[in-house]
Amino acid sequence: MAEQVALSRTQVCGILREELFQGDAFHQSDTHIFIIMGASGDLAKKKIYPTIWWLFRDGLLPENTFIVGYARSRLTVADIRKQSEPFFKATPEEKLKLEDFFARNSYVAGQYDDAASYQRLNSHMNALHLGSQANRLFYLALPPTVYEAVTKNIHESCMSQIGWNRIIVEKPFGRDLQSSDRLSNHISSLFREDQIYRIDHYLGKEMVQNLMVLRFANRIFGPIWNRDNIACVILTFKEPFGTEGRGGYFDEFGIIRDVMQNHLLQMLCLVAMEKPASTNSDDVRDEKVKVLKCISEVQANNVVLGQYVGNPDGEGEATKGYLDDPTVPRGSTTATFAAVVLYVENERWDGVPFILRCGKALNERKAEVRLQFHDVAGDIFHQQCKRNELVIRVQPNEAVYTKMMTKKPGMFFNPEESELDLTYGNRYKNVKLPDAYERLILDVFCGSQMHFVRSDELREAWRIFTPLLHQIELEKPKPIPYIYGSRGPTEADELMKRVGFQYEGTYKWVNP
């Protein structure tokens, strides 16, 4: 592979701008107003304001973009700056750019259920340069409990009458099928589907988006991507930290609602779906819905739930269990780990287990898709061969690698495990991989909904998990304890083995 010439960040961002501006969906010269509902909250200060700053800094926003914060707290732009700027990672050389960014910011205080507050917000936006005809993007960085009041008031008082209007809704989209349907029906009564952007930030990850290209742009994968060759698929999300004093919020939802029903299920769809007619948003989402419709409700015998306990040999936070978090209700049975087996009941995947695993306070930070292939028929190497695996590593250190057998150097035919490896950090030294939120917010500006969740996708996802969630809430089974920093409950490994996964433990990928 030829040595790549190092590029400056300015040059890299210039390439990104060229890609972005050559499309006809990006209205570079139009006025846009980006409204952050819930501007005083954690999500706004840690993710949304920093993301908008990065896009502005790199010249990736339309030229005439204004940012308006809205929340109940009586704040000023200076207050917003004070709480969000520490997350910007701005350099001293960017000081003038930073001043320009905050000059485009404003803030309006108001209630979430008060019509007069929204009329005041609308008047404020109209007073901005060309504000009355601007395109408006409303980001709901809010708890779902206020979605209905907020969307109703936005629709009645704050819509642009000339430009387009788009609304970005953060997960969780309800707690179960019934609450999700209620919320979807409410929002759909106010906005068209092409105006609604239900954001799952995992769909903005580079390697998640790469799944489609790997599958449908490489001839070698087509013939082997089926039940005849693939023994099982494992989708993993692991965090090495616990709730760390923020367990009160987590306890309301648990690990299945927080990660599995959305992030992991979306990745499953991209692995299992048929080739779409095109890369058009609805063509892709149509195929994802077909996959979900082929999955039956989760069966309790295919589920393992766990909850982390303190590690007596650990240090600091590792010595504390979930129930030691003062914000967690006493005696909570909320799971911090889950392993679930699903089956896609169609011709391509009949009988292939899709194993979804996620948890907190585990032994490493990792998100990946792992396809394990069947054993080689007619073994001539005296059971020395391990199964081939194709691994798409989402985070950290984005990579695609194939675990395969090669001859060990020497005189004899002794096979050993090795890999074919594409590590993004080595291959793409001159490429700026956008943060997931950067990519998705740019998608909203461009009107691309491919990486957002459609209402029928959402409904099918909740259909699969709601009976299990209701059973857990009714019966309150005690989750299996696992030690902070471990791989999780051993019962999860036993479940995976029972459905056909072979864990060798003899080879570990190392970032080159």
Rank of each mutant, 00 (worst) to 15 (best):
E3H: 09
Q4P: 11
V5E: 12
A6L: 06
L7W: 04
L7S: 08
S8G: 14
R9Y: 11
G14N: 14
G14L: 04
I15C: 06
L16N: 07
R17H: 06
R17G: 05
E19W: 05
L20I: 04
F21A: 10
F21L: 11
Q22F: 15
G23T: 15
G23D: 15
G23H: 15
G23V: 15
A25D: 12
A25H: 14
A25S: 13
F26G: 07
Q28L: 13
Q28W: 12
Q28P: 14
S29F: 13
D30F: 10
T31Y: 07
T31P: 12
I33Y: 08
I33S: 02
I33P: 00
F34R: 00
F34G: 01
I35A: 07
I35Q: 00
I36L: 05
I36H: 00
M37L: 11
M37E: 00
G38K: 00
G38F: 02
G38E: 04
S40W: 03
G41D: 14
G41L: 05
A44L: 02
A44M: 02
K45N: 13
K46N: 07
K46R: 11
K46I: 06
Y49K: 00
Y49D: 00
P50L: 00
P50S: 04
P50W: 00
W53S: 00
W53P: 00
W54A: 09
W54I: 04
L55C: 10
L55M: 15
F56Q: 02
F56M: 07
F56E: 01
R57N: 05
R57C: 03
G59Q: 05
L60H: 06
L61N: 00
L61G: 00
L61V: 06
L61M: 03
P62L: 03
P62Q: 02
N64W: 03
T65Y: 06
F66K: 10
F66W: 13
F66A: 08
I67H: 02
G69M: 02
Y70V: 09
A71F: 02
R72I: 10
S73L: 04
L75V: 06
L75Y: 10
T76S: 07
V77N: 09
A78H: 03
A78T: 03
A78E: 11
A78K: 10
A78R: 06
D79N: 07
I80N: 01
K82D: 05
K82Y: 07
S84T: 09
S84Y: 10
S84V: 08
P86L: 05
P86Y: 05
F87W: 11
F87I: 05
F88S: 02
F88L: 12
K89P: 04
A90Y: 07
T91C: 07
T91V: 12
E93I: 05
E93N: 12
E93P: 06
E93L: 05
E94L: 02
K95G: 08
L96S: 14
L96D: 09
L96W: 11
K97F: 03
E99A: 05
E99K: 07
F101L: 00
F102Q: 02
A103D: 10
R104F: 04
N105T: 12
S106W: 04
S106V: 09
Y107P: 01
Y107E: 01
V108E: 03
V108C: 14
A109R: 10
Y112D: 04
Y112L: 07
Y112Q: 02
D113L: 06
D114K: 10
A115Y: 09
S117C: 13
S117P: 06
S117G: 11
Q119L: 06
R120A: 07
L121A: 01
L121T: 00
S123V: 09
S123P: 00
M125W: 00
M125K: 00
M125E: 00
M125T: 08
N126L: 12
N126T: 08
A127H: 10
G131V: 04
S132A: 06
S132W: 11
S132F: 11
S132C: 11
Q133H: 14
Q133I: 10
Q133M: 14
A134P: 04
R136A: 03
R136W: 01
L137T: 06
L137W: 01
F138P: 00
F138W: 04
F138K: 00
Y139R: 00
A141N: 12
A141T: 05
P143G: 12
P144E: 05
T145E: 07
T145V: 14
T145P: 09
Y147A: 13
Y147N: 12
E148P: 14
A149R: 14
A149Y: 11
T151Y: 09
T151F: 09
K152M: 08
I154K: 00
H155Y: 08
H155N: 10
E156G: 10
M159G: 13
S160E: 05
Q161S: 07
Q161G: 12
Q161D: 08
I162P: 14
I162H: 10
I162G: 09
G163M: 02
W164Q: 05
W164R: 04
W164F: 10
R166M: 02
R166Q: 00
I167A: 02
I167E: 00
I168S: 02
V169T: 12
K171D: 06
K171F: 04
P172L: 07
F173E: 03
G174H: 09
R175W: 09
R175G: 10
R175V: 12
R175K: 08
L177R: 13
D181E: 08
R182A: 08
L183E: 12
S184Y: 08
N185W: 08
N185Y: 07
N185H: 09
H186M: 10
H186N: 07
S188G: 13
S188I: 06
S188V: 12
S188D: 04
S189P: 10
L190A: 12
R192P: 11
R192A: 07
R192H: 10
R192E: 07
E193N: 06
D194H: 04
D194F: 06
Q195N: 12
Q195Y: 02
Q195I: 04
I196E: 00
I196W: 00
Y197A: 00
R198Y: 03
R198E: 02
R198I: 04
I199K: 06
D200E: 09
H201F: 07
H201K: 13
Y202D: 15
Y202F: 12
L203T: 15
L203S: 13
G204Y: 15
G204K: 15
K205H: 14
E206W: 05
E206C: 13
E206H: 04
M207V: 14
M207A: 15
V208M: 14
N210R: 12
N210L: 02
L211P: 00
L211M: 14
M212T: 03
V213D: 15
L214M: 12
R215Q: 02
F216D: 15
A217R: 03
A217Q: 07
N218Y: 00
R219D: 02
I220V: 09
G222W: 11
G222S: 12
W225F: 14
R227W: 03
I230T: 03
I230S: 01
A231I: 03
A231N: 08
V233N: 01
V233S: 00
V233C: 11
L235W: 00
L235I: 12
T236V: 02
T236N: 08
E239T: 11
E239P: 00
F241K: 13
F241G: 13
G242S: 09
E244S: 12
E244V: 09
E244I: 10
G247M: 12
G247A: 12
G248P: 14
G248T: 12
Y249D: 14
Y249S: 14
E252M: 09
G254V: 00
I255L: 06
I256S: 01
